[in-house]
Design a protein around this nucleic acid. Sequence first.
DNA 1: GCGCTGTGTCCGGCTGGCTGCTGATTCTGG
DNA 2: CCAGAATCAGCAGCCAGCCGGACACAGCGC
Lengths: 238, 238
Amino acid sequence: MRGFSRTGGPSTPAPVGLAAAANGASTLLDVMRGLSGCVIETVERGKTIFFPGDPAERVYLLRRGAVRLSRVYESGEEITVALLRENSLFGVLSLLTGQRSDRFYHAVAFTRVELVAAPAGSVRRAIEQDSAVGLLLLQGLSSRILQTETMIETLTHRDMSSRLVSFLLVLCRDFGVPGSEGITIDLRLSHQAIAEAIGSTRVTITRLLGDLRQAGLVQIDRKKITVFDPVALAKRFS
Amino acid sequence: MRGFSRTGGPSTPAPVGLAAAANGASTLLDVMRGLSGCVIETVERGKTIFFPGDPAERVYLLRRGAVRLSRVYESGEEITVALLRENSLFGVLSLLTGQRSDRFYHAVAFTRVELVAAPAGSVRRAIEQDSAVGLLLLQGLSSRILQTETMIETLTHRDMSSRLVSFLLVLCRDFGVPGSEGITIDLRLSHQAIAEAIGSTRVTITRLLGDLRQAGLVQIDRKKITVFDPVALAKRFS
DNA sequence: GCGCTGTGTCCGGCTGGCTGCTGATTCTGG
DNA sequence: CCAGAATCAGCAGCCAGCCGGACACAGCGC
Protein backbone atom coordinates (compact mmCIF):
# COMPACT_ATOMS: atom_id res chain seq x y z
CA MET A 1 0.00 0.00 0.00
CA ARG A 2 1.79 3.08 -1.22
CA GLY A 3 -0.59 5.77 -0.16
CA PHE A 4 0.28 8.21 -2.86
CA SER A 5 -1.79 11.06 -3.98
CA ARG A 6 -0.80 12.23 -7.40
CA THR A 7 -1.52 15.80 -8.06
CA GLY A 8 -0.61 15.26 -11.65
CA GLY A 9 2.45 16.38 -13.52
CA PRO A 10 2.26 18.07 -16.88
CA SER A 11 0.56 15.55 -19.11
CA THR A 12 1.89 17.21 -22.19
CA PRO A 13 5.67 17.15 -22.23
CA ALA A 14 6.71 20.59 -21.12
CA PRO A 15 9.04 22.48 -23.42
CA VAL A 16 12.32 21.72 -21.74
CA GLY A 17 14.56 23.05 -24.45
CA LEU A 18 16.82 25.86 -23.40
CA ALA A 19 14.39 27.29 -20.94
CA ALA A 20 16.45 26.39 -17.94
CA ALA A 21 19.69 27.47 -19.51
CA ALA A 22 18.23 30.81 -20.47
CA ASN A 23 17.24 31.40 -16.92
CA GLY A 24 20.36 31.55 -14.80
CA ALA A 25 18.41 31.44 -11.54
CA SER A 26 16.68 28.21 -12.42
CA THR A 27 16.61 25.55 -9.76
CA LEU A 28 16.57 21.81 -9.59
CA LEU A 29 12.91 22.00 -8.72
CA ASP A 30 12.11 23.98 -11.85
CA VAL A 31 14.04 21.55 -13.94
CA MET A 32 12.43 18.47 -12.48
CA ARG A 33 8.98 19.92 -12.79
CA GLY A 34 9.51 20.58 -16.43
CA LEU A 35 10.50 17.01 -17.28
CA SER A 36 8.21 14.95 -19.42
CA GLY A 37 6.54 12.19 -17.46
CA CYS A 38 7.20 13.99 -14.23
CA VAL A 39 4.77 13.46 -11.39
CA ILE A 40 4.30 15.49 -8.26
CA GLU A 41 3.37 13.35 -5.33
CA THR A 42 2.32 13.83 -1.76
CA VAL A 43 3.11 11.05 0.66
CA GLU A 44 1.82 10.91 4.20
CA ARG A 45 4.11 10.40 7.15
CA GLY A 46 5.06 6.77 7.52
CA LYS A 47 4.04 5.69 4.03
CA THR A 48 6.47 3.98 1.73
CA ILE A 49 7.84 5.67 -1.37
CA PHE A 50 9.57 2.62 -2.71
CA PHE A 51 10.30 -0.83 -1.39
CA PRO A 52 13.47 -2.83 -1.77
CA GLY A 53 13.04 -4.96 -4.85
CA ASP A 54 10.95 -2.42 -6.69
CA PRO A 55 12.29 -1.61 -10.13
CA ALA A 56 14.41 1.54 -10.08
CA GLU A 57 13.06 3.61 -12.88
CA ARG A 58 12.53 7.06 -11.48
CA VAL A 59 14.59 9.79 -9.94
CA TYR A 60 13.14 11.75 -7.05
CA LEU A 61 13.55 15.24 -5.79
CA LEU A 62 12.41 15.83 -2.27
CA ARG A 63 10.59 19.10 -2.38
CA ARG A 64 9.21 19.32 1.11
CA GLY A 65 9.58 17.21 4.23
CA ALA A 66 12.03 14.47 5.11
CA VAL A 67 12.60 11.01 3.69
CA ARG A 68 14.26 8.09 5.39
CA LEU A 69 16.27 5.62 3.37
CA SER A 70 16.76 2.39 5.22
CA ARG A 71 17.93 -1.13 4.87
CA VAL A 72 15.80 -3.94 6.17
CA TYR A 73 17.36 -7.17 7.32
CA GLU A 74 15.86 -10.61 7.49
CA SER A 75 16.06 -10.37 11.25
CA GLY A 76 13.50 -7.60 11.05
CA GLU A 77 16.07 -5.09 12.14
CA GLU A 78 16.13 -1.87 10.21
CA ILE A 79 18.91 0.65 9.95
CA THR A 80 18.75 4.13 8.54
CA VAL A 81 21.12 4.86 5.73
CA ALA A 82 20.13 8.47 5.16
CA LEU A 83 17.72 11.07 6.41
CA LEU A 84 17.13 13.28 3.42
CA ARG A 85 16.33 16.92 3.78
CA GLU A 86 14.48 19.18 1.41
CA ASN A 87 15.94 19.59 -2.05
CA SER A 88 17.72 16.27 -1.91
CA LEU A 89 17.89 14.07 -4.94
CA PHE A 90 17.38 10.38 -4.41
CA GLY A 91 16.71 7.21 -6.29
CA VAL A 92 19.74 7.94 -8.43
CA LEU A 93 20.37 4.25 -8.85
CA SER A 94 18.11 4.48 -11.85
CA LEU A 95 20.51 6.84 -13.56
CA LEU A 96 23.27 4.29 -13.63
CA THR A 97 23.96 1.77 -16.33
CA GLY A 98 21.09 1.43 -18.71
CA GLN A 99 20.30 -2.06 -17.54
CA ARG A 100 17.36 -2.65 -15.24
CA SER A 101 18.12 -2.61 -11.58
CA ASP A 102 16.10 -2.89 -8.44
CA ARG A 103 15.95 -0.74 -5.36
CA PHE A 104 17.72 -2.17 -2.42
CA TYR A 105 16.69 0.47 0.06
CA HIS A 106 13.40 1.18 1.64
CA ALA A 107 12.29 4.79 1.23
CA VAL A 108 9.72 6.04 3.70
CA ALA A 109 8.20 9.45 4.21
CA PHE A 110 9.50 10.54 7.58
CA THR A 111 7.18 13.50 7.63
CA ARG A 112 4.45 14.48 5.24
CA VAL A 113 6.32 14.78 2.03
CA GLU A 114 6.02 16.42 -1.33
CA LEU A 115 8.20 15.08 -4.06
CA VAL A 116 8.78 15.31 -7.74
CA ALA A 117 9.45 12.08 -9.56
CA ALA A 118 10.68 11.77 -13.12
CA PRO A 119 11.56 8.73 -15.22
CA ALA A 120 15.27 8.17 -15.53
CA GLY A 121 15.05 8.19 -19.31
CA SER A 122 13.36 11.51 -19.22
CA VAL A 123 16.10 12.93 -17.07
CA ARG A 124 18.72 11.64 -19.45
CA ARG A 125 16.99 13.22 -22.38
CA ALA A 126 16.64 16.51 -20.58
CA ILE A 127 20.34 16.53 -19.90
CA GLU A 128 21.09 15.97 -23.52
CA GLN A 129 18.82 18.78 -24.56
CA ASP A 130 19.93 21.26 -22.00
CA SER A 131 23.32 21.03 -20.44
CA ALA A 132 22.33 23.32 -17.58
CA VAL A 133 20.17 20.50 -16.31
CA GLY A 134 23.20 18.28 -16.00
CA LEU A 135 25.02 20.87 -13.98
CA LEU A 136 22.15 21.33 -11.59
CA LEU A 137 21.77 17.62 -11.04
CA LEU A 138 25.48 17.35 -10.54
CA GLN A 139 25.39 19.94 -7.83
CA GLY A 140 22.48 18.20 -6.22
CA LEU A 141 24.37 14.94 -6.10
CA SER A 142 27.52 16.62 -4.88
CA SER A 143 25.76 17.98 -1.88
CA ARG A 144 24.20 14.59 -1.22
CA ILE A 145 27.71 13.15 -1.13
CA LEU A 146 28.91 15.72 1.34
CA GLN A 147 25.88 15.05 3.48
CA THR A 148 26.50 11.33 3.45
CA GLU A 149 30.15 11.76 4.26
CA THR A 150 29.34 13.84 7.30
CA MET A 151 27.18 11.00 8.42
CA ILE A 152 30.07 8.59 8.06
CA GLU A 153 32.12 10.90 10.19
CA THR A 154 29.41 10.77 12.81
CA LEU A 155 29.30 7.02 12.77
CA THR A 156 32.99 6.47 13.24
CA HIS A 157 32.97 8.10 16.64
CA ARG A 158 33.66 5.42 19.15
CA ASP A 159 31.57 6.28 22.13
CA MET A 160 27.86 6.62 21.76
CA SER A 161 27.80 9.95 23.47
CA SER A 162 29.97 11.56 20.80
CA ARG A 163 28.01 9.82 18.14
CA LEU A 164 24.74 11.14 19.38
CA VAL A 165 26.06 14.65 19.73
CA SER A 166 27.55 14.57 16.28
CA PHE A 167 24.27 13.30 14.91
CA LEU A 168 22.32 16.04 16.60
CA LEU A 169 24.59 18.58 15.00
CA VAL A 170 24.01 17.02 11.60
CA LEU A 171 20.29 17.23 12.20
CA CYS A 172 20.62 20.87 13.19
CA ARG A 173 22.36 21.54 9.93
CA ASP A 174 19.81 19.68 7.85
CA PHE A 175 16.57 20.25 9.71
CA GLY A 176 17.27 23.01 12.18
CA VAL A 177 15.12 26.09 12.46
CA PRO A 178 16.55 28.91 14.58
CA GLY A 179 14.39 30.08 17.42
CA SER A 180 14.64 32.42 20.35
CA GLU A 181 16.41 29.91 22.57
CA GLY A 182 18.42 27.87 20.13
CA ILE A 183 18.02 25.66 17.11
CA THR A 184 15.06 23.34 16.97
CA ILE A 185 15.22 20.19 14.92
CA ASP A 186 12.08 20.18 12.90
CA LEU A 187 11.42 16.45 13.03
CA ARG A 188 9.46 14.27 15.38
CA LEU A 189 12.19 11.88 16.37
CA SER A 190 11.56 8.86 18.52
CA HIS A 191 14.50 7.47 20.45
CA GLN A 192 14.11 4.34 18.40
CA ALA A 193 14.52 6.30 15.17
CA ILE A 194 17.69 7.90 16.45
CA ALA A 195 19.03 4.54 17.53
CA GLU A 196 18.42 3.11 14.08
CA ALA A 197 20.27 5.98 12.51
CA ILE A 198 23.41 5.87 14.61
CA GLY A 199 23.63 2.17 15.26
CA SER A 200 22.64 2.01 18.88
CA THR A 201 19.67 0.95 20.94
CA ARG A 202 16.64 2.74 22.18
CA VAL A 203 17.62 2.45 25.81
CA THR A 204 21.05 3.96 25.32
CA ILE A 205 19.61 6.90 23.42
CA THR A 206 17.12 7.53 26.19
CA ARG A 207 19.88 7.59 28.75
CA LEU A 208 22.23 9.81 26.75
CA LEU A 209 19.52 12.28 25.77
CA GLY A 210 18.60 12.42 29.43
CA ASP A 211 22.19 13.27 30.27
CA LEU A 212 22.28 16.04 27.68
CA ARG A 213 19.05 17.46 28.98
CA GLN A 214 20.28 17.45 32.54
CA ALA A 215 23.47 19.12 31.42
CA GLY A 216 21.27 21.92 30.09
CA LEU A 217 22.42 21.43 26.53
CA VAL A 218 19.19 20.41 24.90
CA GLN A 219 15.49 20.52 25.47
CA ILE A 220 12.90 18.06 24.31
CA ASP A 221 9.31 18.94 23.82
CA ARG A 222 6.95 16.38 22.36
CA LYS A 223 9.66 14.69 20.31
CA LYS A 224 11.14 17.89 18.99
CA ILE A 225 14.68 18.51 20.12
CA THR A 226 16.04 21.98 20.67
CA VAL A 227 19.77 22.52 20.86
CA PHE A 228 20.48 25.60 22.91
CA ASP A 229 24.01 26.18 21.80
CA PRO A 230 25.50 24.07 19.03
CA VAL A 231 29.07 25.13 19.72
CA ALA A 232 28.74 24.27 23.39
CA LEU A 233 27.30 20.94 22.37
CA ALA A 234 30.12 20.36 19.92
CA LYS A 235 32.57 20.58 22.79
CA ARG A 236 31.11 17.32 24.00
CA PHE A 237 33.46 15.33 21.86
CA SER A 238 37.16 15.83 21.66
CA MET B 1 55.28 18.71 0.50
CA ARG B 2 52.93 17.36 -2.11
CA GLY B 3 55.25 15.05 -3.98
CA PHE B 4 53.46 15.35 -7.28
CA SER B 5 54.88 14.51 -10.60
CA ARG B 6 52.97 16.16 -13.36
CA THR B 7 53.13 14.40 -16.62
CA GLY B 8 51.45 17.33 -18.24
CA GLY B 9 47.95 17.65 -19.56
CA PRO B 10 47.13 19.13 -22.93
CA SER B 11 48.51 22.64 -22.81
CA THR B 12 46.27 23.75 -25.60
CA PRO B 13 42.63 23.40 -24.70
CA ALA B 14 41.55 20.18 -26.31
CA PRO B 15 38.61 20.37 -28.65
CA VAL B 16 35.91 19.11 -26.35
CA GLY B 17 33.01 20.02 -28.52
CA LEU B 18 30.78 17.14 -29.43
CA ALA B 19 33.57 14.65 -29.52
CA ALA B 20 32.39 12.78 -26.47
CA ALA B 21 28.79 12.85 -27.52
CA ALA B 22 29.61 11.54 -30.93
CA ASN B 23 31.38 8.61 -29.40
CA GLY B 24 28.86 6.58 -27.44
CA ALA B 25 31.51 4.44 -25.80
CA SER B 26 33.29 7.41 -24.30
CA THR B 27 34.23 7.15 -20.66
CA LEU B 28 34.70 9.50 -17.78
CA LEU B 29 38.41 9.13 -18.22
CA ASP B 30 38.26 10.25 -21.83
CA VAL B 31 36.14 13.18 -20.88
CA MET B 32 38.37 14.33 -18.07
CA ARG B 33 41.49 13.97 -20.12
CA GLY B 34 40.03 16.20 -22.77
CA LEU B 35 39.26 19.06 -20.44
CA SER B 36 41.18 22.27 -20.78
CA GLY B 37 43.55 22.83 -17.91
CA CYS B 38 43.48 19.16 -17.05
CA VAL B 39 46.56 17.69 -15.45
CA ILE B 40 47.56 14.08 -15.10
CA GLU B 41 49.37 13.43 -11.87
CA THR B 42 51.17 10.58 -10.23
CA VAL B 43 51.28 10.56 -6.46
CA GLU B 44 53.35 8.17 -4.41
CA ARG B 45 51.90 6.07 -1.65
CA GLY B 46 51.47 8.11 1.49
CA LYS B 47 51.72 11.51 -0.13
CA THR B 48 49.01 14.08 0.23
CA ILE B 49 46.79 15.10 -2.66
CA PHE B 50 45.10 17.92 -0.83
CA PHE B 51 45.06 19.16 2.73
CA PRO B 52 42.13 20.40 4.71
CA GLY B 53 42.03 24.14 4.26
CA ASP B 54 43.35 24.05 0.72
CA PRO B 55 41.16 25.92 -1.74
CA ALA B 56 38.80 23.57 -3.54
CA GLU B 57 39.22 24.39 -7.15
CA ARG B 58 39.71 21.13 -8.95
CA VAL B 59 37.79 17.95 -9.53
CA TYR B 60 39.69 14.68 -9.50
CA LEU B 61 39.22 11.39 -11.21
CA LEU B 62 41.11 8.51 -9.69
CA ARG B 63 42.50 6.63 -12.60
CA ARG B 64 44.63 4.06 -10.88
CA GLY B 65 45.22 3.11 -7.27
CA ALA B 66 43.34 4.00 -4.11
CA VAL B 67 42.82 7.29 -2.31
CA ARG B 68 41.91 7.77 1.31
CA LEU B 69 39.75 10.69 2.33
CA SER B 70 40.06 11.40 6.00
CA ARG B 71 39.21 13.87 8.65
CA VAL B 72 41.87 15.01 11.06
CA TYR B 73 40.97 16.12 14.55
CA GLU B 74 42.83 18.44 16.85
CA SER B 75 43.51 15.47 19.09
CA GLY B 76 45.64 14.06 16.31
CA GLU B 77 43.13 11.30 15.74
CA GLU B 78 42.30 10.59 12.14
CA ILE B 79 39.27 8.82 10.76
CA THR B 80 38.73 7.58 7.25
CA VAL B 81 35.69 8.91 5.48
CA ALA B 82 36.15 7.04 2.23
CA LEU B 83 38.51 4.67 0.54
CA LEU B 84 38.15 5.47 -3.12
CA ARG B 85 38.64 2.88 -5.77
CA GLU B 86 39.62 3.34 -9.38
CA ASN B 87 37.37 5.47 -11.51
CA SER B 88 36.01 7.37 -8.55
CA LEU B 89 35.36 11.05 -8.80
CA PHE B 90 36.35 13.15 -5.84
CA GLY B 91 36.88 16.73 -4.84
CA VAL B 92 33.39 17.50 -6.00
CA LEU B 93 33.05 20.18 -3.38
CA SER B 94 34.50 22.51 -5.96
CA LEU B 95 31.54 21.93 -8.23
CA LEU B 96 29.12 23.39 -5.75
CA THR B 97 28.07 27.00 -5.45
CA GLY B 98 30.35 29.29 -7.33
CA GLN B 99 31.73 30.82 -4.19
CA ARG B 100 35.18 29.85 -2.97
CA SER B 101 35.30 27.03 -0.54
CA ASP B 102 38.01 25.10 1.18
CA ARG B 103 38.65 21.41 1.47
CA PHE B 104 37.80 19.98 4.80
CA TYR B 105 39.11 16.52 4.16
CA HIS B 106 42.60 15.23 3.86
CA ALA B 107 43.17 13.27 0.67
CA VAL B 108 46.11 10.89 0.71
CA ALA B 109 47.35 8.42 -1.84
CA PHE B 110 46.78 5.06 -0.23
CA THR B 111 48.72 3.32 -2.94
CA ARG B 112 50.71 4.71 -5.81
CA VAL B 113 48.09 6.70 -7.61
CA GLU B 114 47.43 8.14 -11.02
CA LEU B 115 44.81 10.80 -11.23
CA VAL B 116 43.37 13.31 -13.59
CA ALA B 117 42.60 16.73 -12.19
CA ALA B 118 40.61 19.43 -13.89
CA PRO B 119 39.59 22.91 -12.76
CA ALA B 120 35.98 23.11 -11.68
CA GLY B 121 35.31 25.92 -14.12
CA SER B 122 36.60 23.84 -16.93
CA VAL B 123 34.31 21.00 -15.97
CA ARG B 124 31.35 23.33 -15.91
CA ARG B 125 32.17 24.65 -19.32
CA ALA B 126 32.59 21.18 -20.73
CA ILE B 127 29.16 20.26 -19.45
CA GLU B 128 27.65 23.26 -21.13
CA GLN B 129 29.30 22.43 -24.41
CA ASP B 130 28.57 18.76 -24.38
CA SER B 131 25.70 17.37 -22.44
CA ALA B 132 27.08 13.84 -22.60
CA VAL B 133 29.79 14.99 -20.23
CA GLY B 134 27.17 15.89 -17.67
CA LEU B 135 25.60 12.48 -17.90
CA LEU B 136 28.89 10.70 -17.41
CA LEU B 137 29.78 12.79 -14.40
CA LEU B 138 26.34 12.19 -13.02
CA GLN B 139 26.78 8.47 -13.27
CA GLY B 140 30.16 8.75 -11.65
CA LEU B 141 28.72 10.61 -8.71
CA SER B 142 25.79 8.26 -8.46
CA SER B 143 28.04 5.32 -7.98
CA ARG B 144 30.06 7.27 -5.41
CA ILE B 145 26.85 7.76 -3.47
CA LEU B 146 26.00 4.09 -3.55
CA GLN B 147 29.49 3.30 -2.39
CA THR B 148 29.26 5.73 0.48
CA GLU B 149 25.89 4.44 1.53
CA THR B 150 27.17 0.89 1.71
CA MET B 151 29.82 2.19 4.04
CA ILE B 152 27.17 3.72 6.26
CA GLU B 153 25.46 0.39 6.37
CA THR B 154 28.71 -1.15 7.48
CA LEU B 155 29.17 1.38 10.21
CA THR B 156 25.77 1.00 11.76
CA HIS B 157 26.41 -2.60 12.67
CA ARG B 158 26.60 -2.75 16.39
CA ASP B 159 29.19 -5.34 17.16
CA MET B 160 32.66 -4.86 15.87
CA SER B 161 32.85 -8.32 14.45
CA SER B 162 29.96 -7.66 12.05
CA ARG B 163 31.40 -4.32 11.22
CA LEU B 164 34.74 -5.74 10.31
CA VAL B 165 33.20 -8.49 8.22
CA SER B 166 30.97 -6.06 6.43
CA PHE B 167 33.93 -3.83 5.76
CA LEU B 168 35.97 -6.68 4.37
CA LEU B 169 33.15 -7.46 1.98
CA VAL B 170 33.06 -3.85 0.86
CA LEU B 171 36.77 -4.00 0.25
CA CYS B 172 36.33 -7.19 -1.75
CA ARG B 173 33.83 -5.43 -3.92
CA ASP B 174 35.98 -2.37 -4.44
CA PHE B 175 39.49 -3.75 -4.41
CA GLY B 176 39.15 -7.49 -4.73
CA VAL B 177 41.01 -9.53 -7.30
CA PRO B 178 39.85 -13.11 -7.70
CA GLY B 179 42.51 -15.75 -7.26
CA SER B 180 42.75 -19.49 -7.07
CA GLU B 181 41.79 -19.66 -3.41
CA GLY B 182 39.43 -16.75 -3.01
CA ILE B 183 39.34 -13.00 -3.37
CA THR B 184 42.38 -11.01 -2.42
CA ILE B 185 42.03 -7.41 -1.38
CA ASP B 186 44.60 -5.55 -3.35
CA LEU B 187 45.61 -3.10 -0.67
CA ARG B 188 48.24 -3.17 1.97
CA LEU B 189 46.10 -2.60 5.00
CA SER B 190 47.51 -2.13 8.47
CA HIS B 191 45.26 -2.96 11.38
CA GLN B 192 45.46 0.68 12.31
CA ALA B 193 44.11 1.70 8.90
CA ILE B 194 41.18 -0.66 9.24
CA ALA B 195 40.45 0.64 12.70
CA GLU B 196 40.40 4.21 11.45
CA ALA B 197 37.95 3.24 8.76
CA ILE B 198 35.41 1.43 10.86
CA GLY B 199 35.68 3.39 14.08
CA SER B 200 37.47 0.91 16.24
CA THR B 201 40.94 0.47 17.68
CA ARG B 202 44.02 -1.26 16.47
CA VAL B 203 43.97 -3.85 19.24
CA THR B 204 40.42 -4.91 18.57
CA ILE B 205 41.06 -5.32 14.86
CA THR B 206 44.07 -7.47 15.61
CA ARG B 207 41.98 -9.71 17.79
CA LEU B 208 39.05 -9.99 15.41
CA LEU B 209 41.19 -10.61 12.37
CA GLY B 210 42.93 -13.31 14.37
CA ASP B 211 39.58 -14.89 15.06
CA LEU B 212 38.63 -14.84 11.40
CA ARG B 213 41.93 -16.35 10.45
CA GLN B 214 41.60 -19.11 12.99
CA ALA B 215 38.08 -19.77 11.78
CA GLY B 216 39.62 -20.41 8.38
CA LEU B 217 37.71 -17.60 6.71
CA VAL B 218 40.56 -15.35 5.71
CA GLN B 219 44.25 -15.42 5.17
CA ILE B 220 46.70 -12.62 5.65
CA ASP B 221 49.98 -12.42 3.89
CA ARG B 222 52.16 -9.37 4.37
CA LYS B 223 49.20 -7.06 4.90
CA LYS B 224 47.16 -8.40 2.02
CA ILE B 225 43.95 -10.05 3.06
CA THR B 226 42.45 -12.94 1.15
CA VAL B 227 38.83 -13.85 1.72
CA PHE B 228 38.35 -17.50 0.90
CA ASP B 229 34.60 -17.47 0.56
CA PRO B 230 32.70 -14.19 0.70
CA VAL B 231 29.32 -15.82 1.16
CA ALA B 232 30.58 -17.93 4.05
CA LEU B 233 32.05 -14.77 5.54
CA ALA B 234 28.79 -12.91 5.05
CA LYS B 235 27.08 -15.46 7.25
CA ARG B 236 29.09 -13.99 10.09
CA PHE B 237 26.50 -11.36 10.73
CA SER B 238 22.82 -11.99 11.10
C1' DG C 1 -12.28 4.62 26.74
C1' DC C 2 -8.74 1.50 25.15
C1' DG C 3 -4.59 0.16 22.89
C1' DC C 4 -0.34 1.31 20.96
C1' DT C 5 3.70 3.58 20.73
C1' DG C 6 7.13 5.92 23.06
C1' DT C 7 9.79 7.07 27.44
C1' DG C 8 12.18 6.26 31.69
C1' DT C 9 14.69 2.99 34.73
C1' DC C 10 17.00 -1.08 36.72
C1' DC C 11 20.31 -4.84 36.54
C1' DG C 12 23.49 -8.55 34.94
C1' DG C 13 26.84 -9.69 31.70
C1' DC C 14 30.03 -9.12 28.20
C1' DT C 15 32.11 -6.63 24.51
C1' DG C 16 35.45 -3.71 23.34
C1' DG C 17 38.38 0.37 24.60
C1' DC C 18 42.64 1.51 27.13
C1' DT C 19 47.42 0.70 28.74
C1' DG C 20 51.69 -1.40 28.59
C1' DC C 21 55.05 -4.42 26.62
C1' DT C 22 57.60 -7.43 23.20
C1' DG C 23 59.02 -9.18 18.97
C1' DA C 24 58.50 -8.78 13.90
C1' DT C 25 58.42 -6.26 9.71
C1' DT C 26 59.17 -2.40 6.90
C1' DC C 27 61.25 1.98 5.73
C1' DT C 28 65.04 5.20 5.34
C1' DG C 29 69.43 7.15 4.87
C1' DG C 30 74.07 6.44 4.51
C1' DC D 1 73.50 -3.36 1.16
C1' DC D 2 73.29 -2.64 5.87
C1' DA D 3 72.06 -0.58 10.38
C1' DG D 4 69.05 2.07 12.98
C1' DA D 5 64.46 3.95 13.24
C1' DA D 6 59.80 3.64 12.80
C1' DT D 7 55.79 1.34 12.19
C1' DC D 8 53.13 -2.88 12.86
C1' DA D 9 51.31 -7.13 15.10
C1' DG D 10 50.19 -9.90 18.84
C1' DC D 11 49.15 -10.68 23.89
C1' DA D 12 47.25 -9.78 28.55
C1' DG D 13 44.70 -7.49 32.23
C1' DC D 14 41.52 -3.96 33.72
C1' DC D 15 37.37 -1.66 33.65
C1' DA D 16 33.61 1.23 31.69
C1' DG D 17 30.07 1.56 28.59
C1' DC D 18 26.61 -0.49 26.29
C1' DC D 19 23.44 -4.22 25.11
C1' DG D 20 19.66 -7.26 26.30
C1' DG D 21 15.69 -8.05 28.59
C1' DA D 22 12.04 -6.67 31.52
C1' DC D 23 8.64 -3.61 33.49
C1' DA D 24 5.89 0.51 34.61
C1' DC D 25 3.90 4.54 33.06
C1' DA D 26 2.78 8.53 30.04
C1' DG D 27 0.88 10.43 25.83
C1' DC D 28 -1.52 10.10 21.73
C1' DG D 29 -4.60 8.50 18.25
C1' DC D 30 -8.66 5.96 17.27
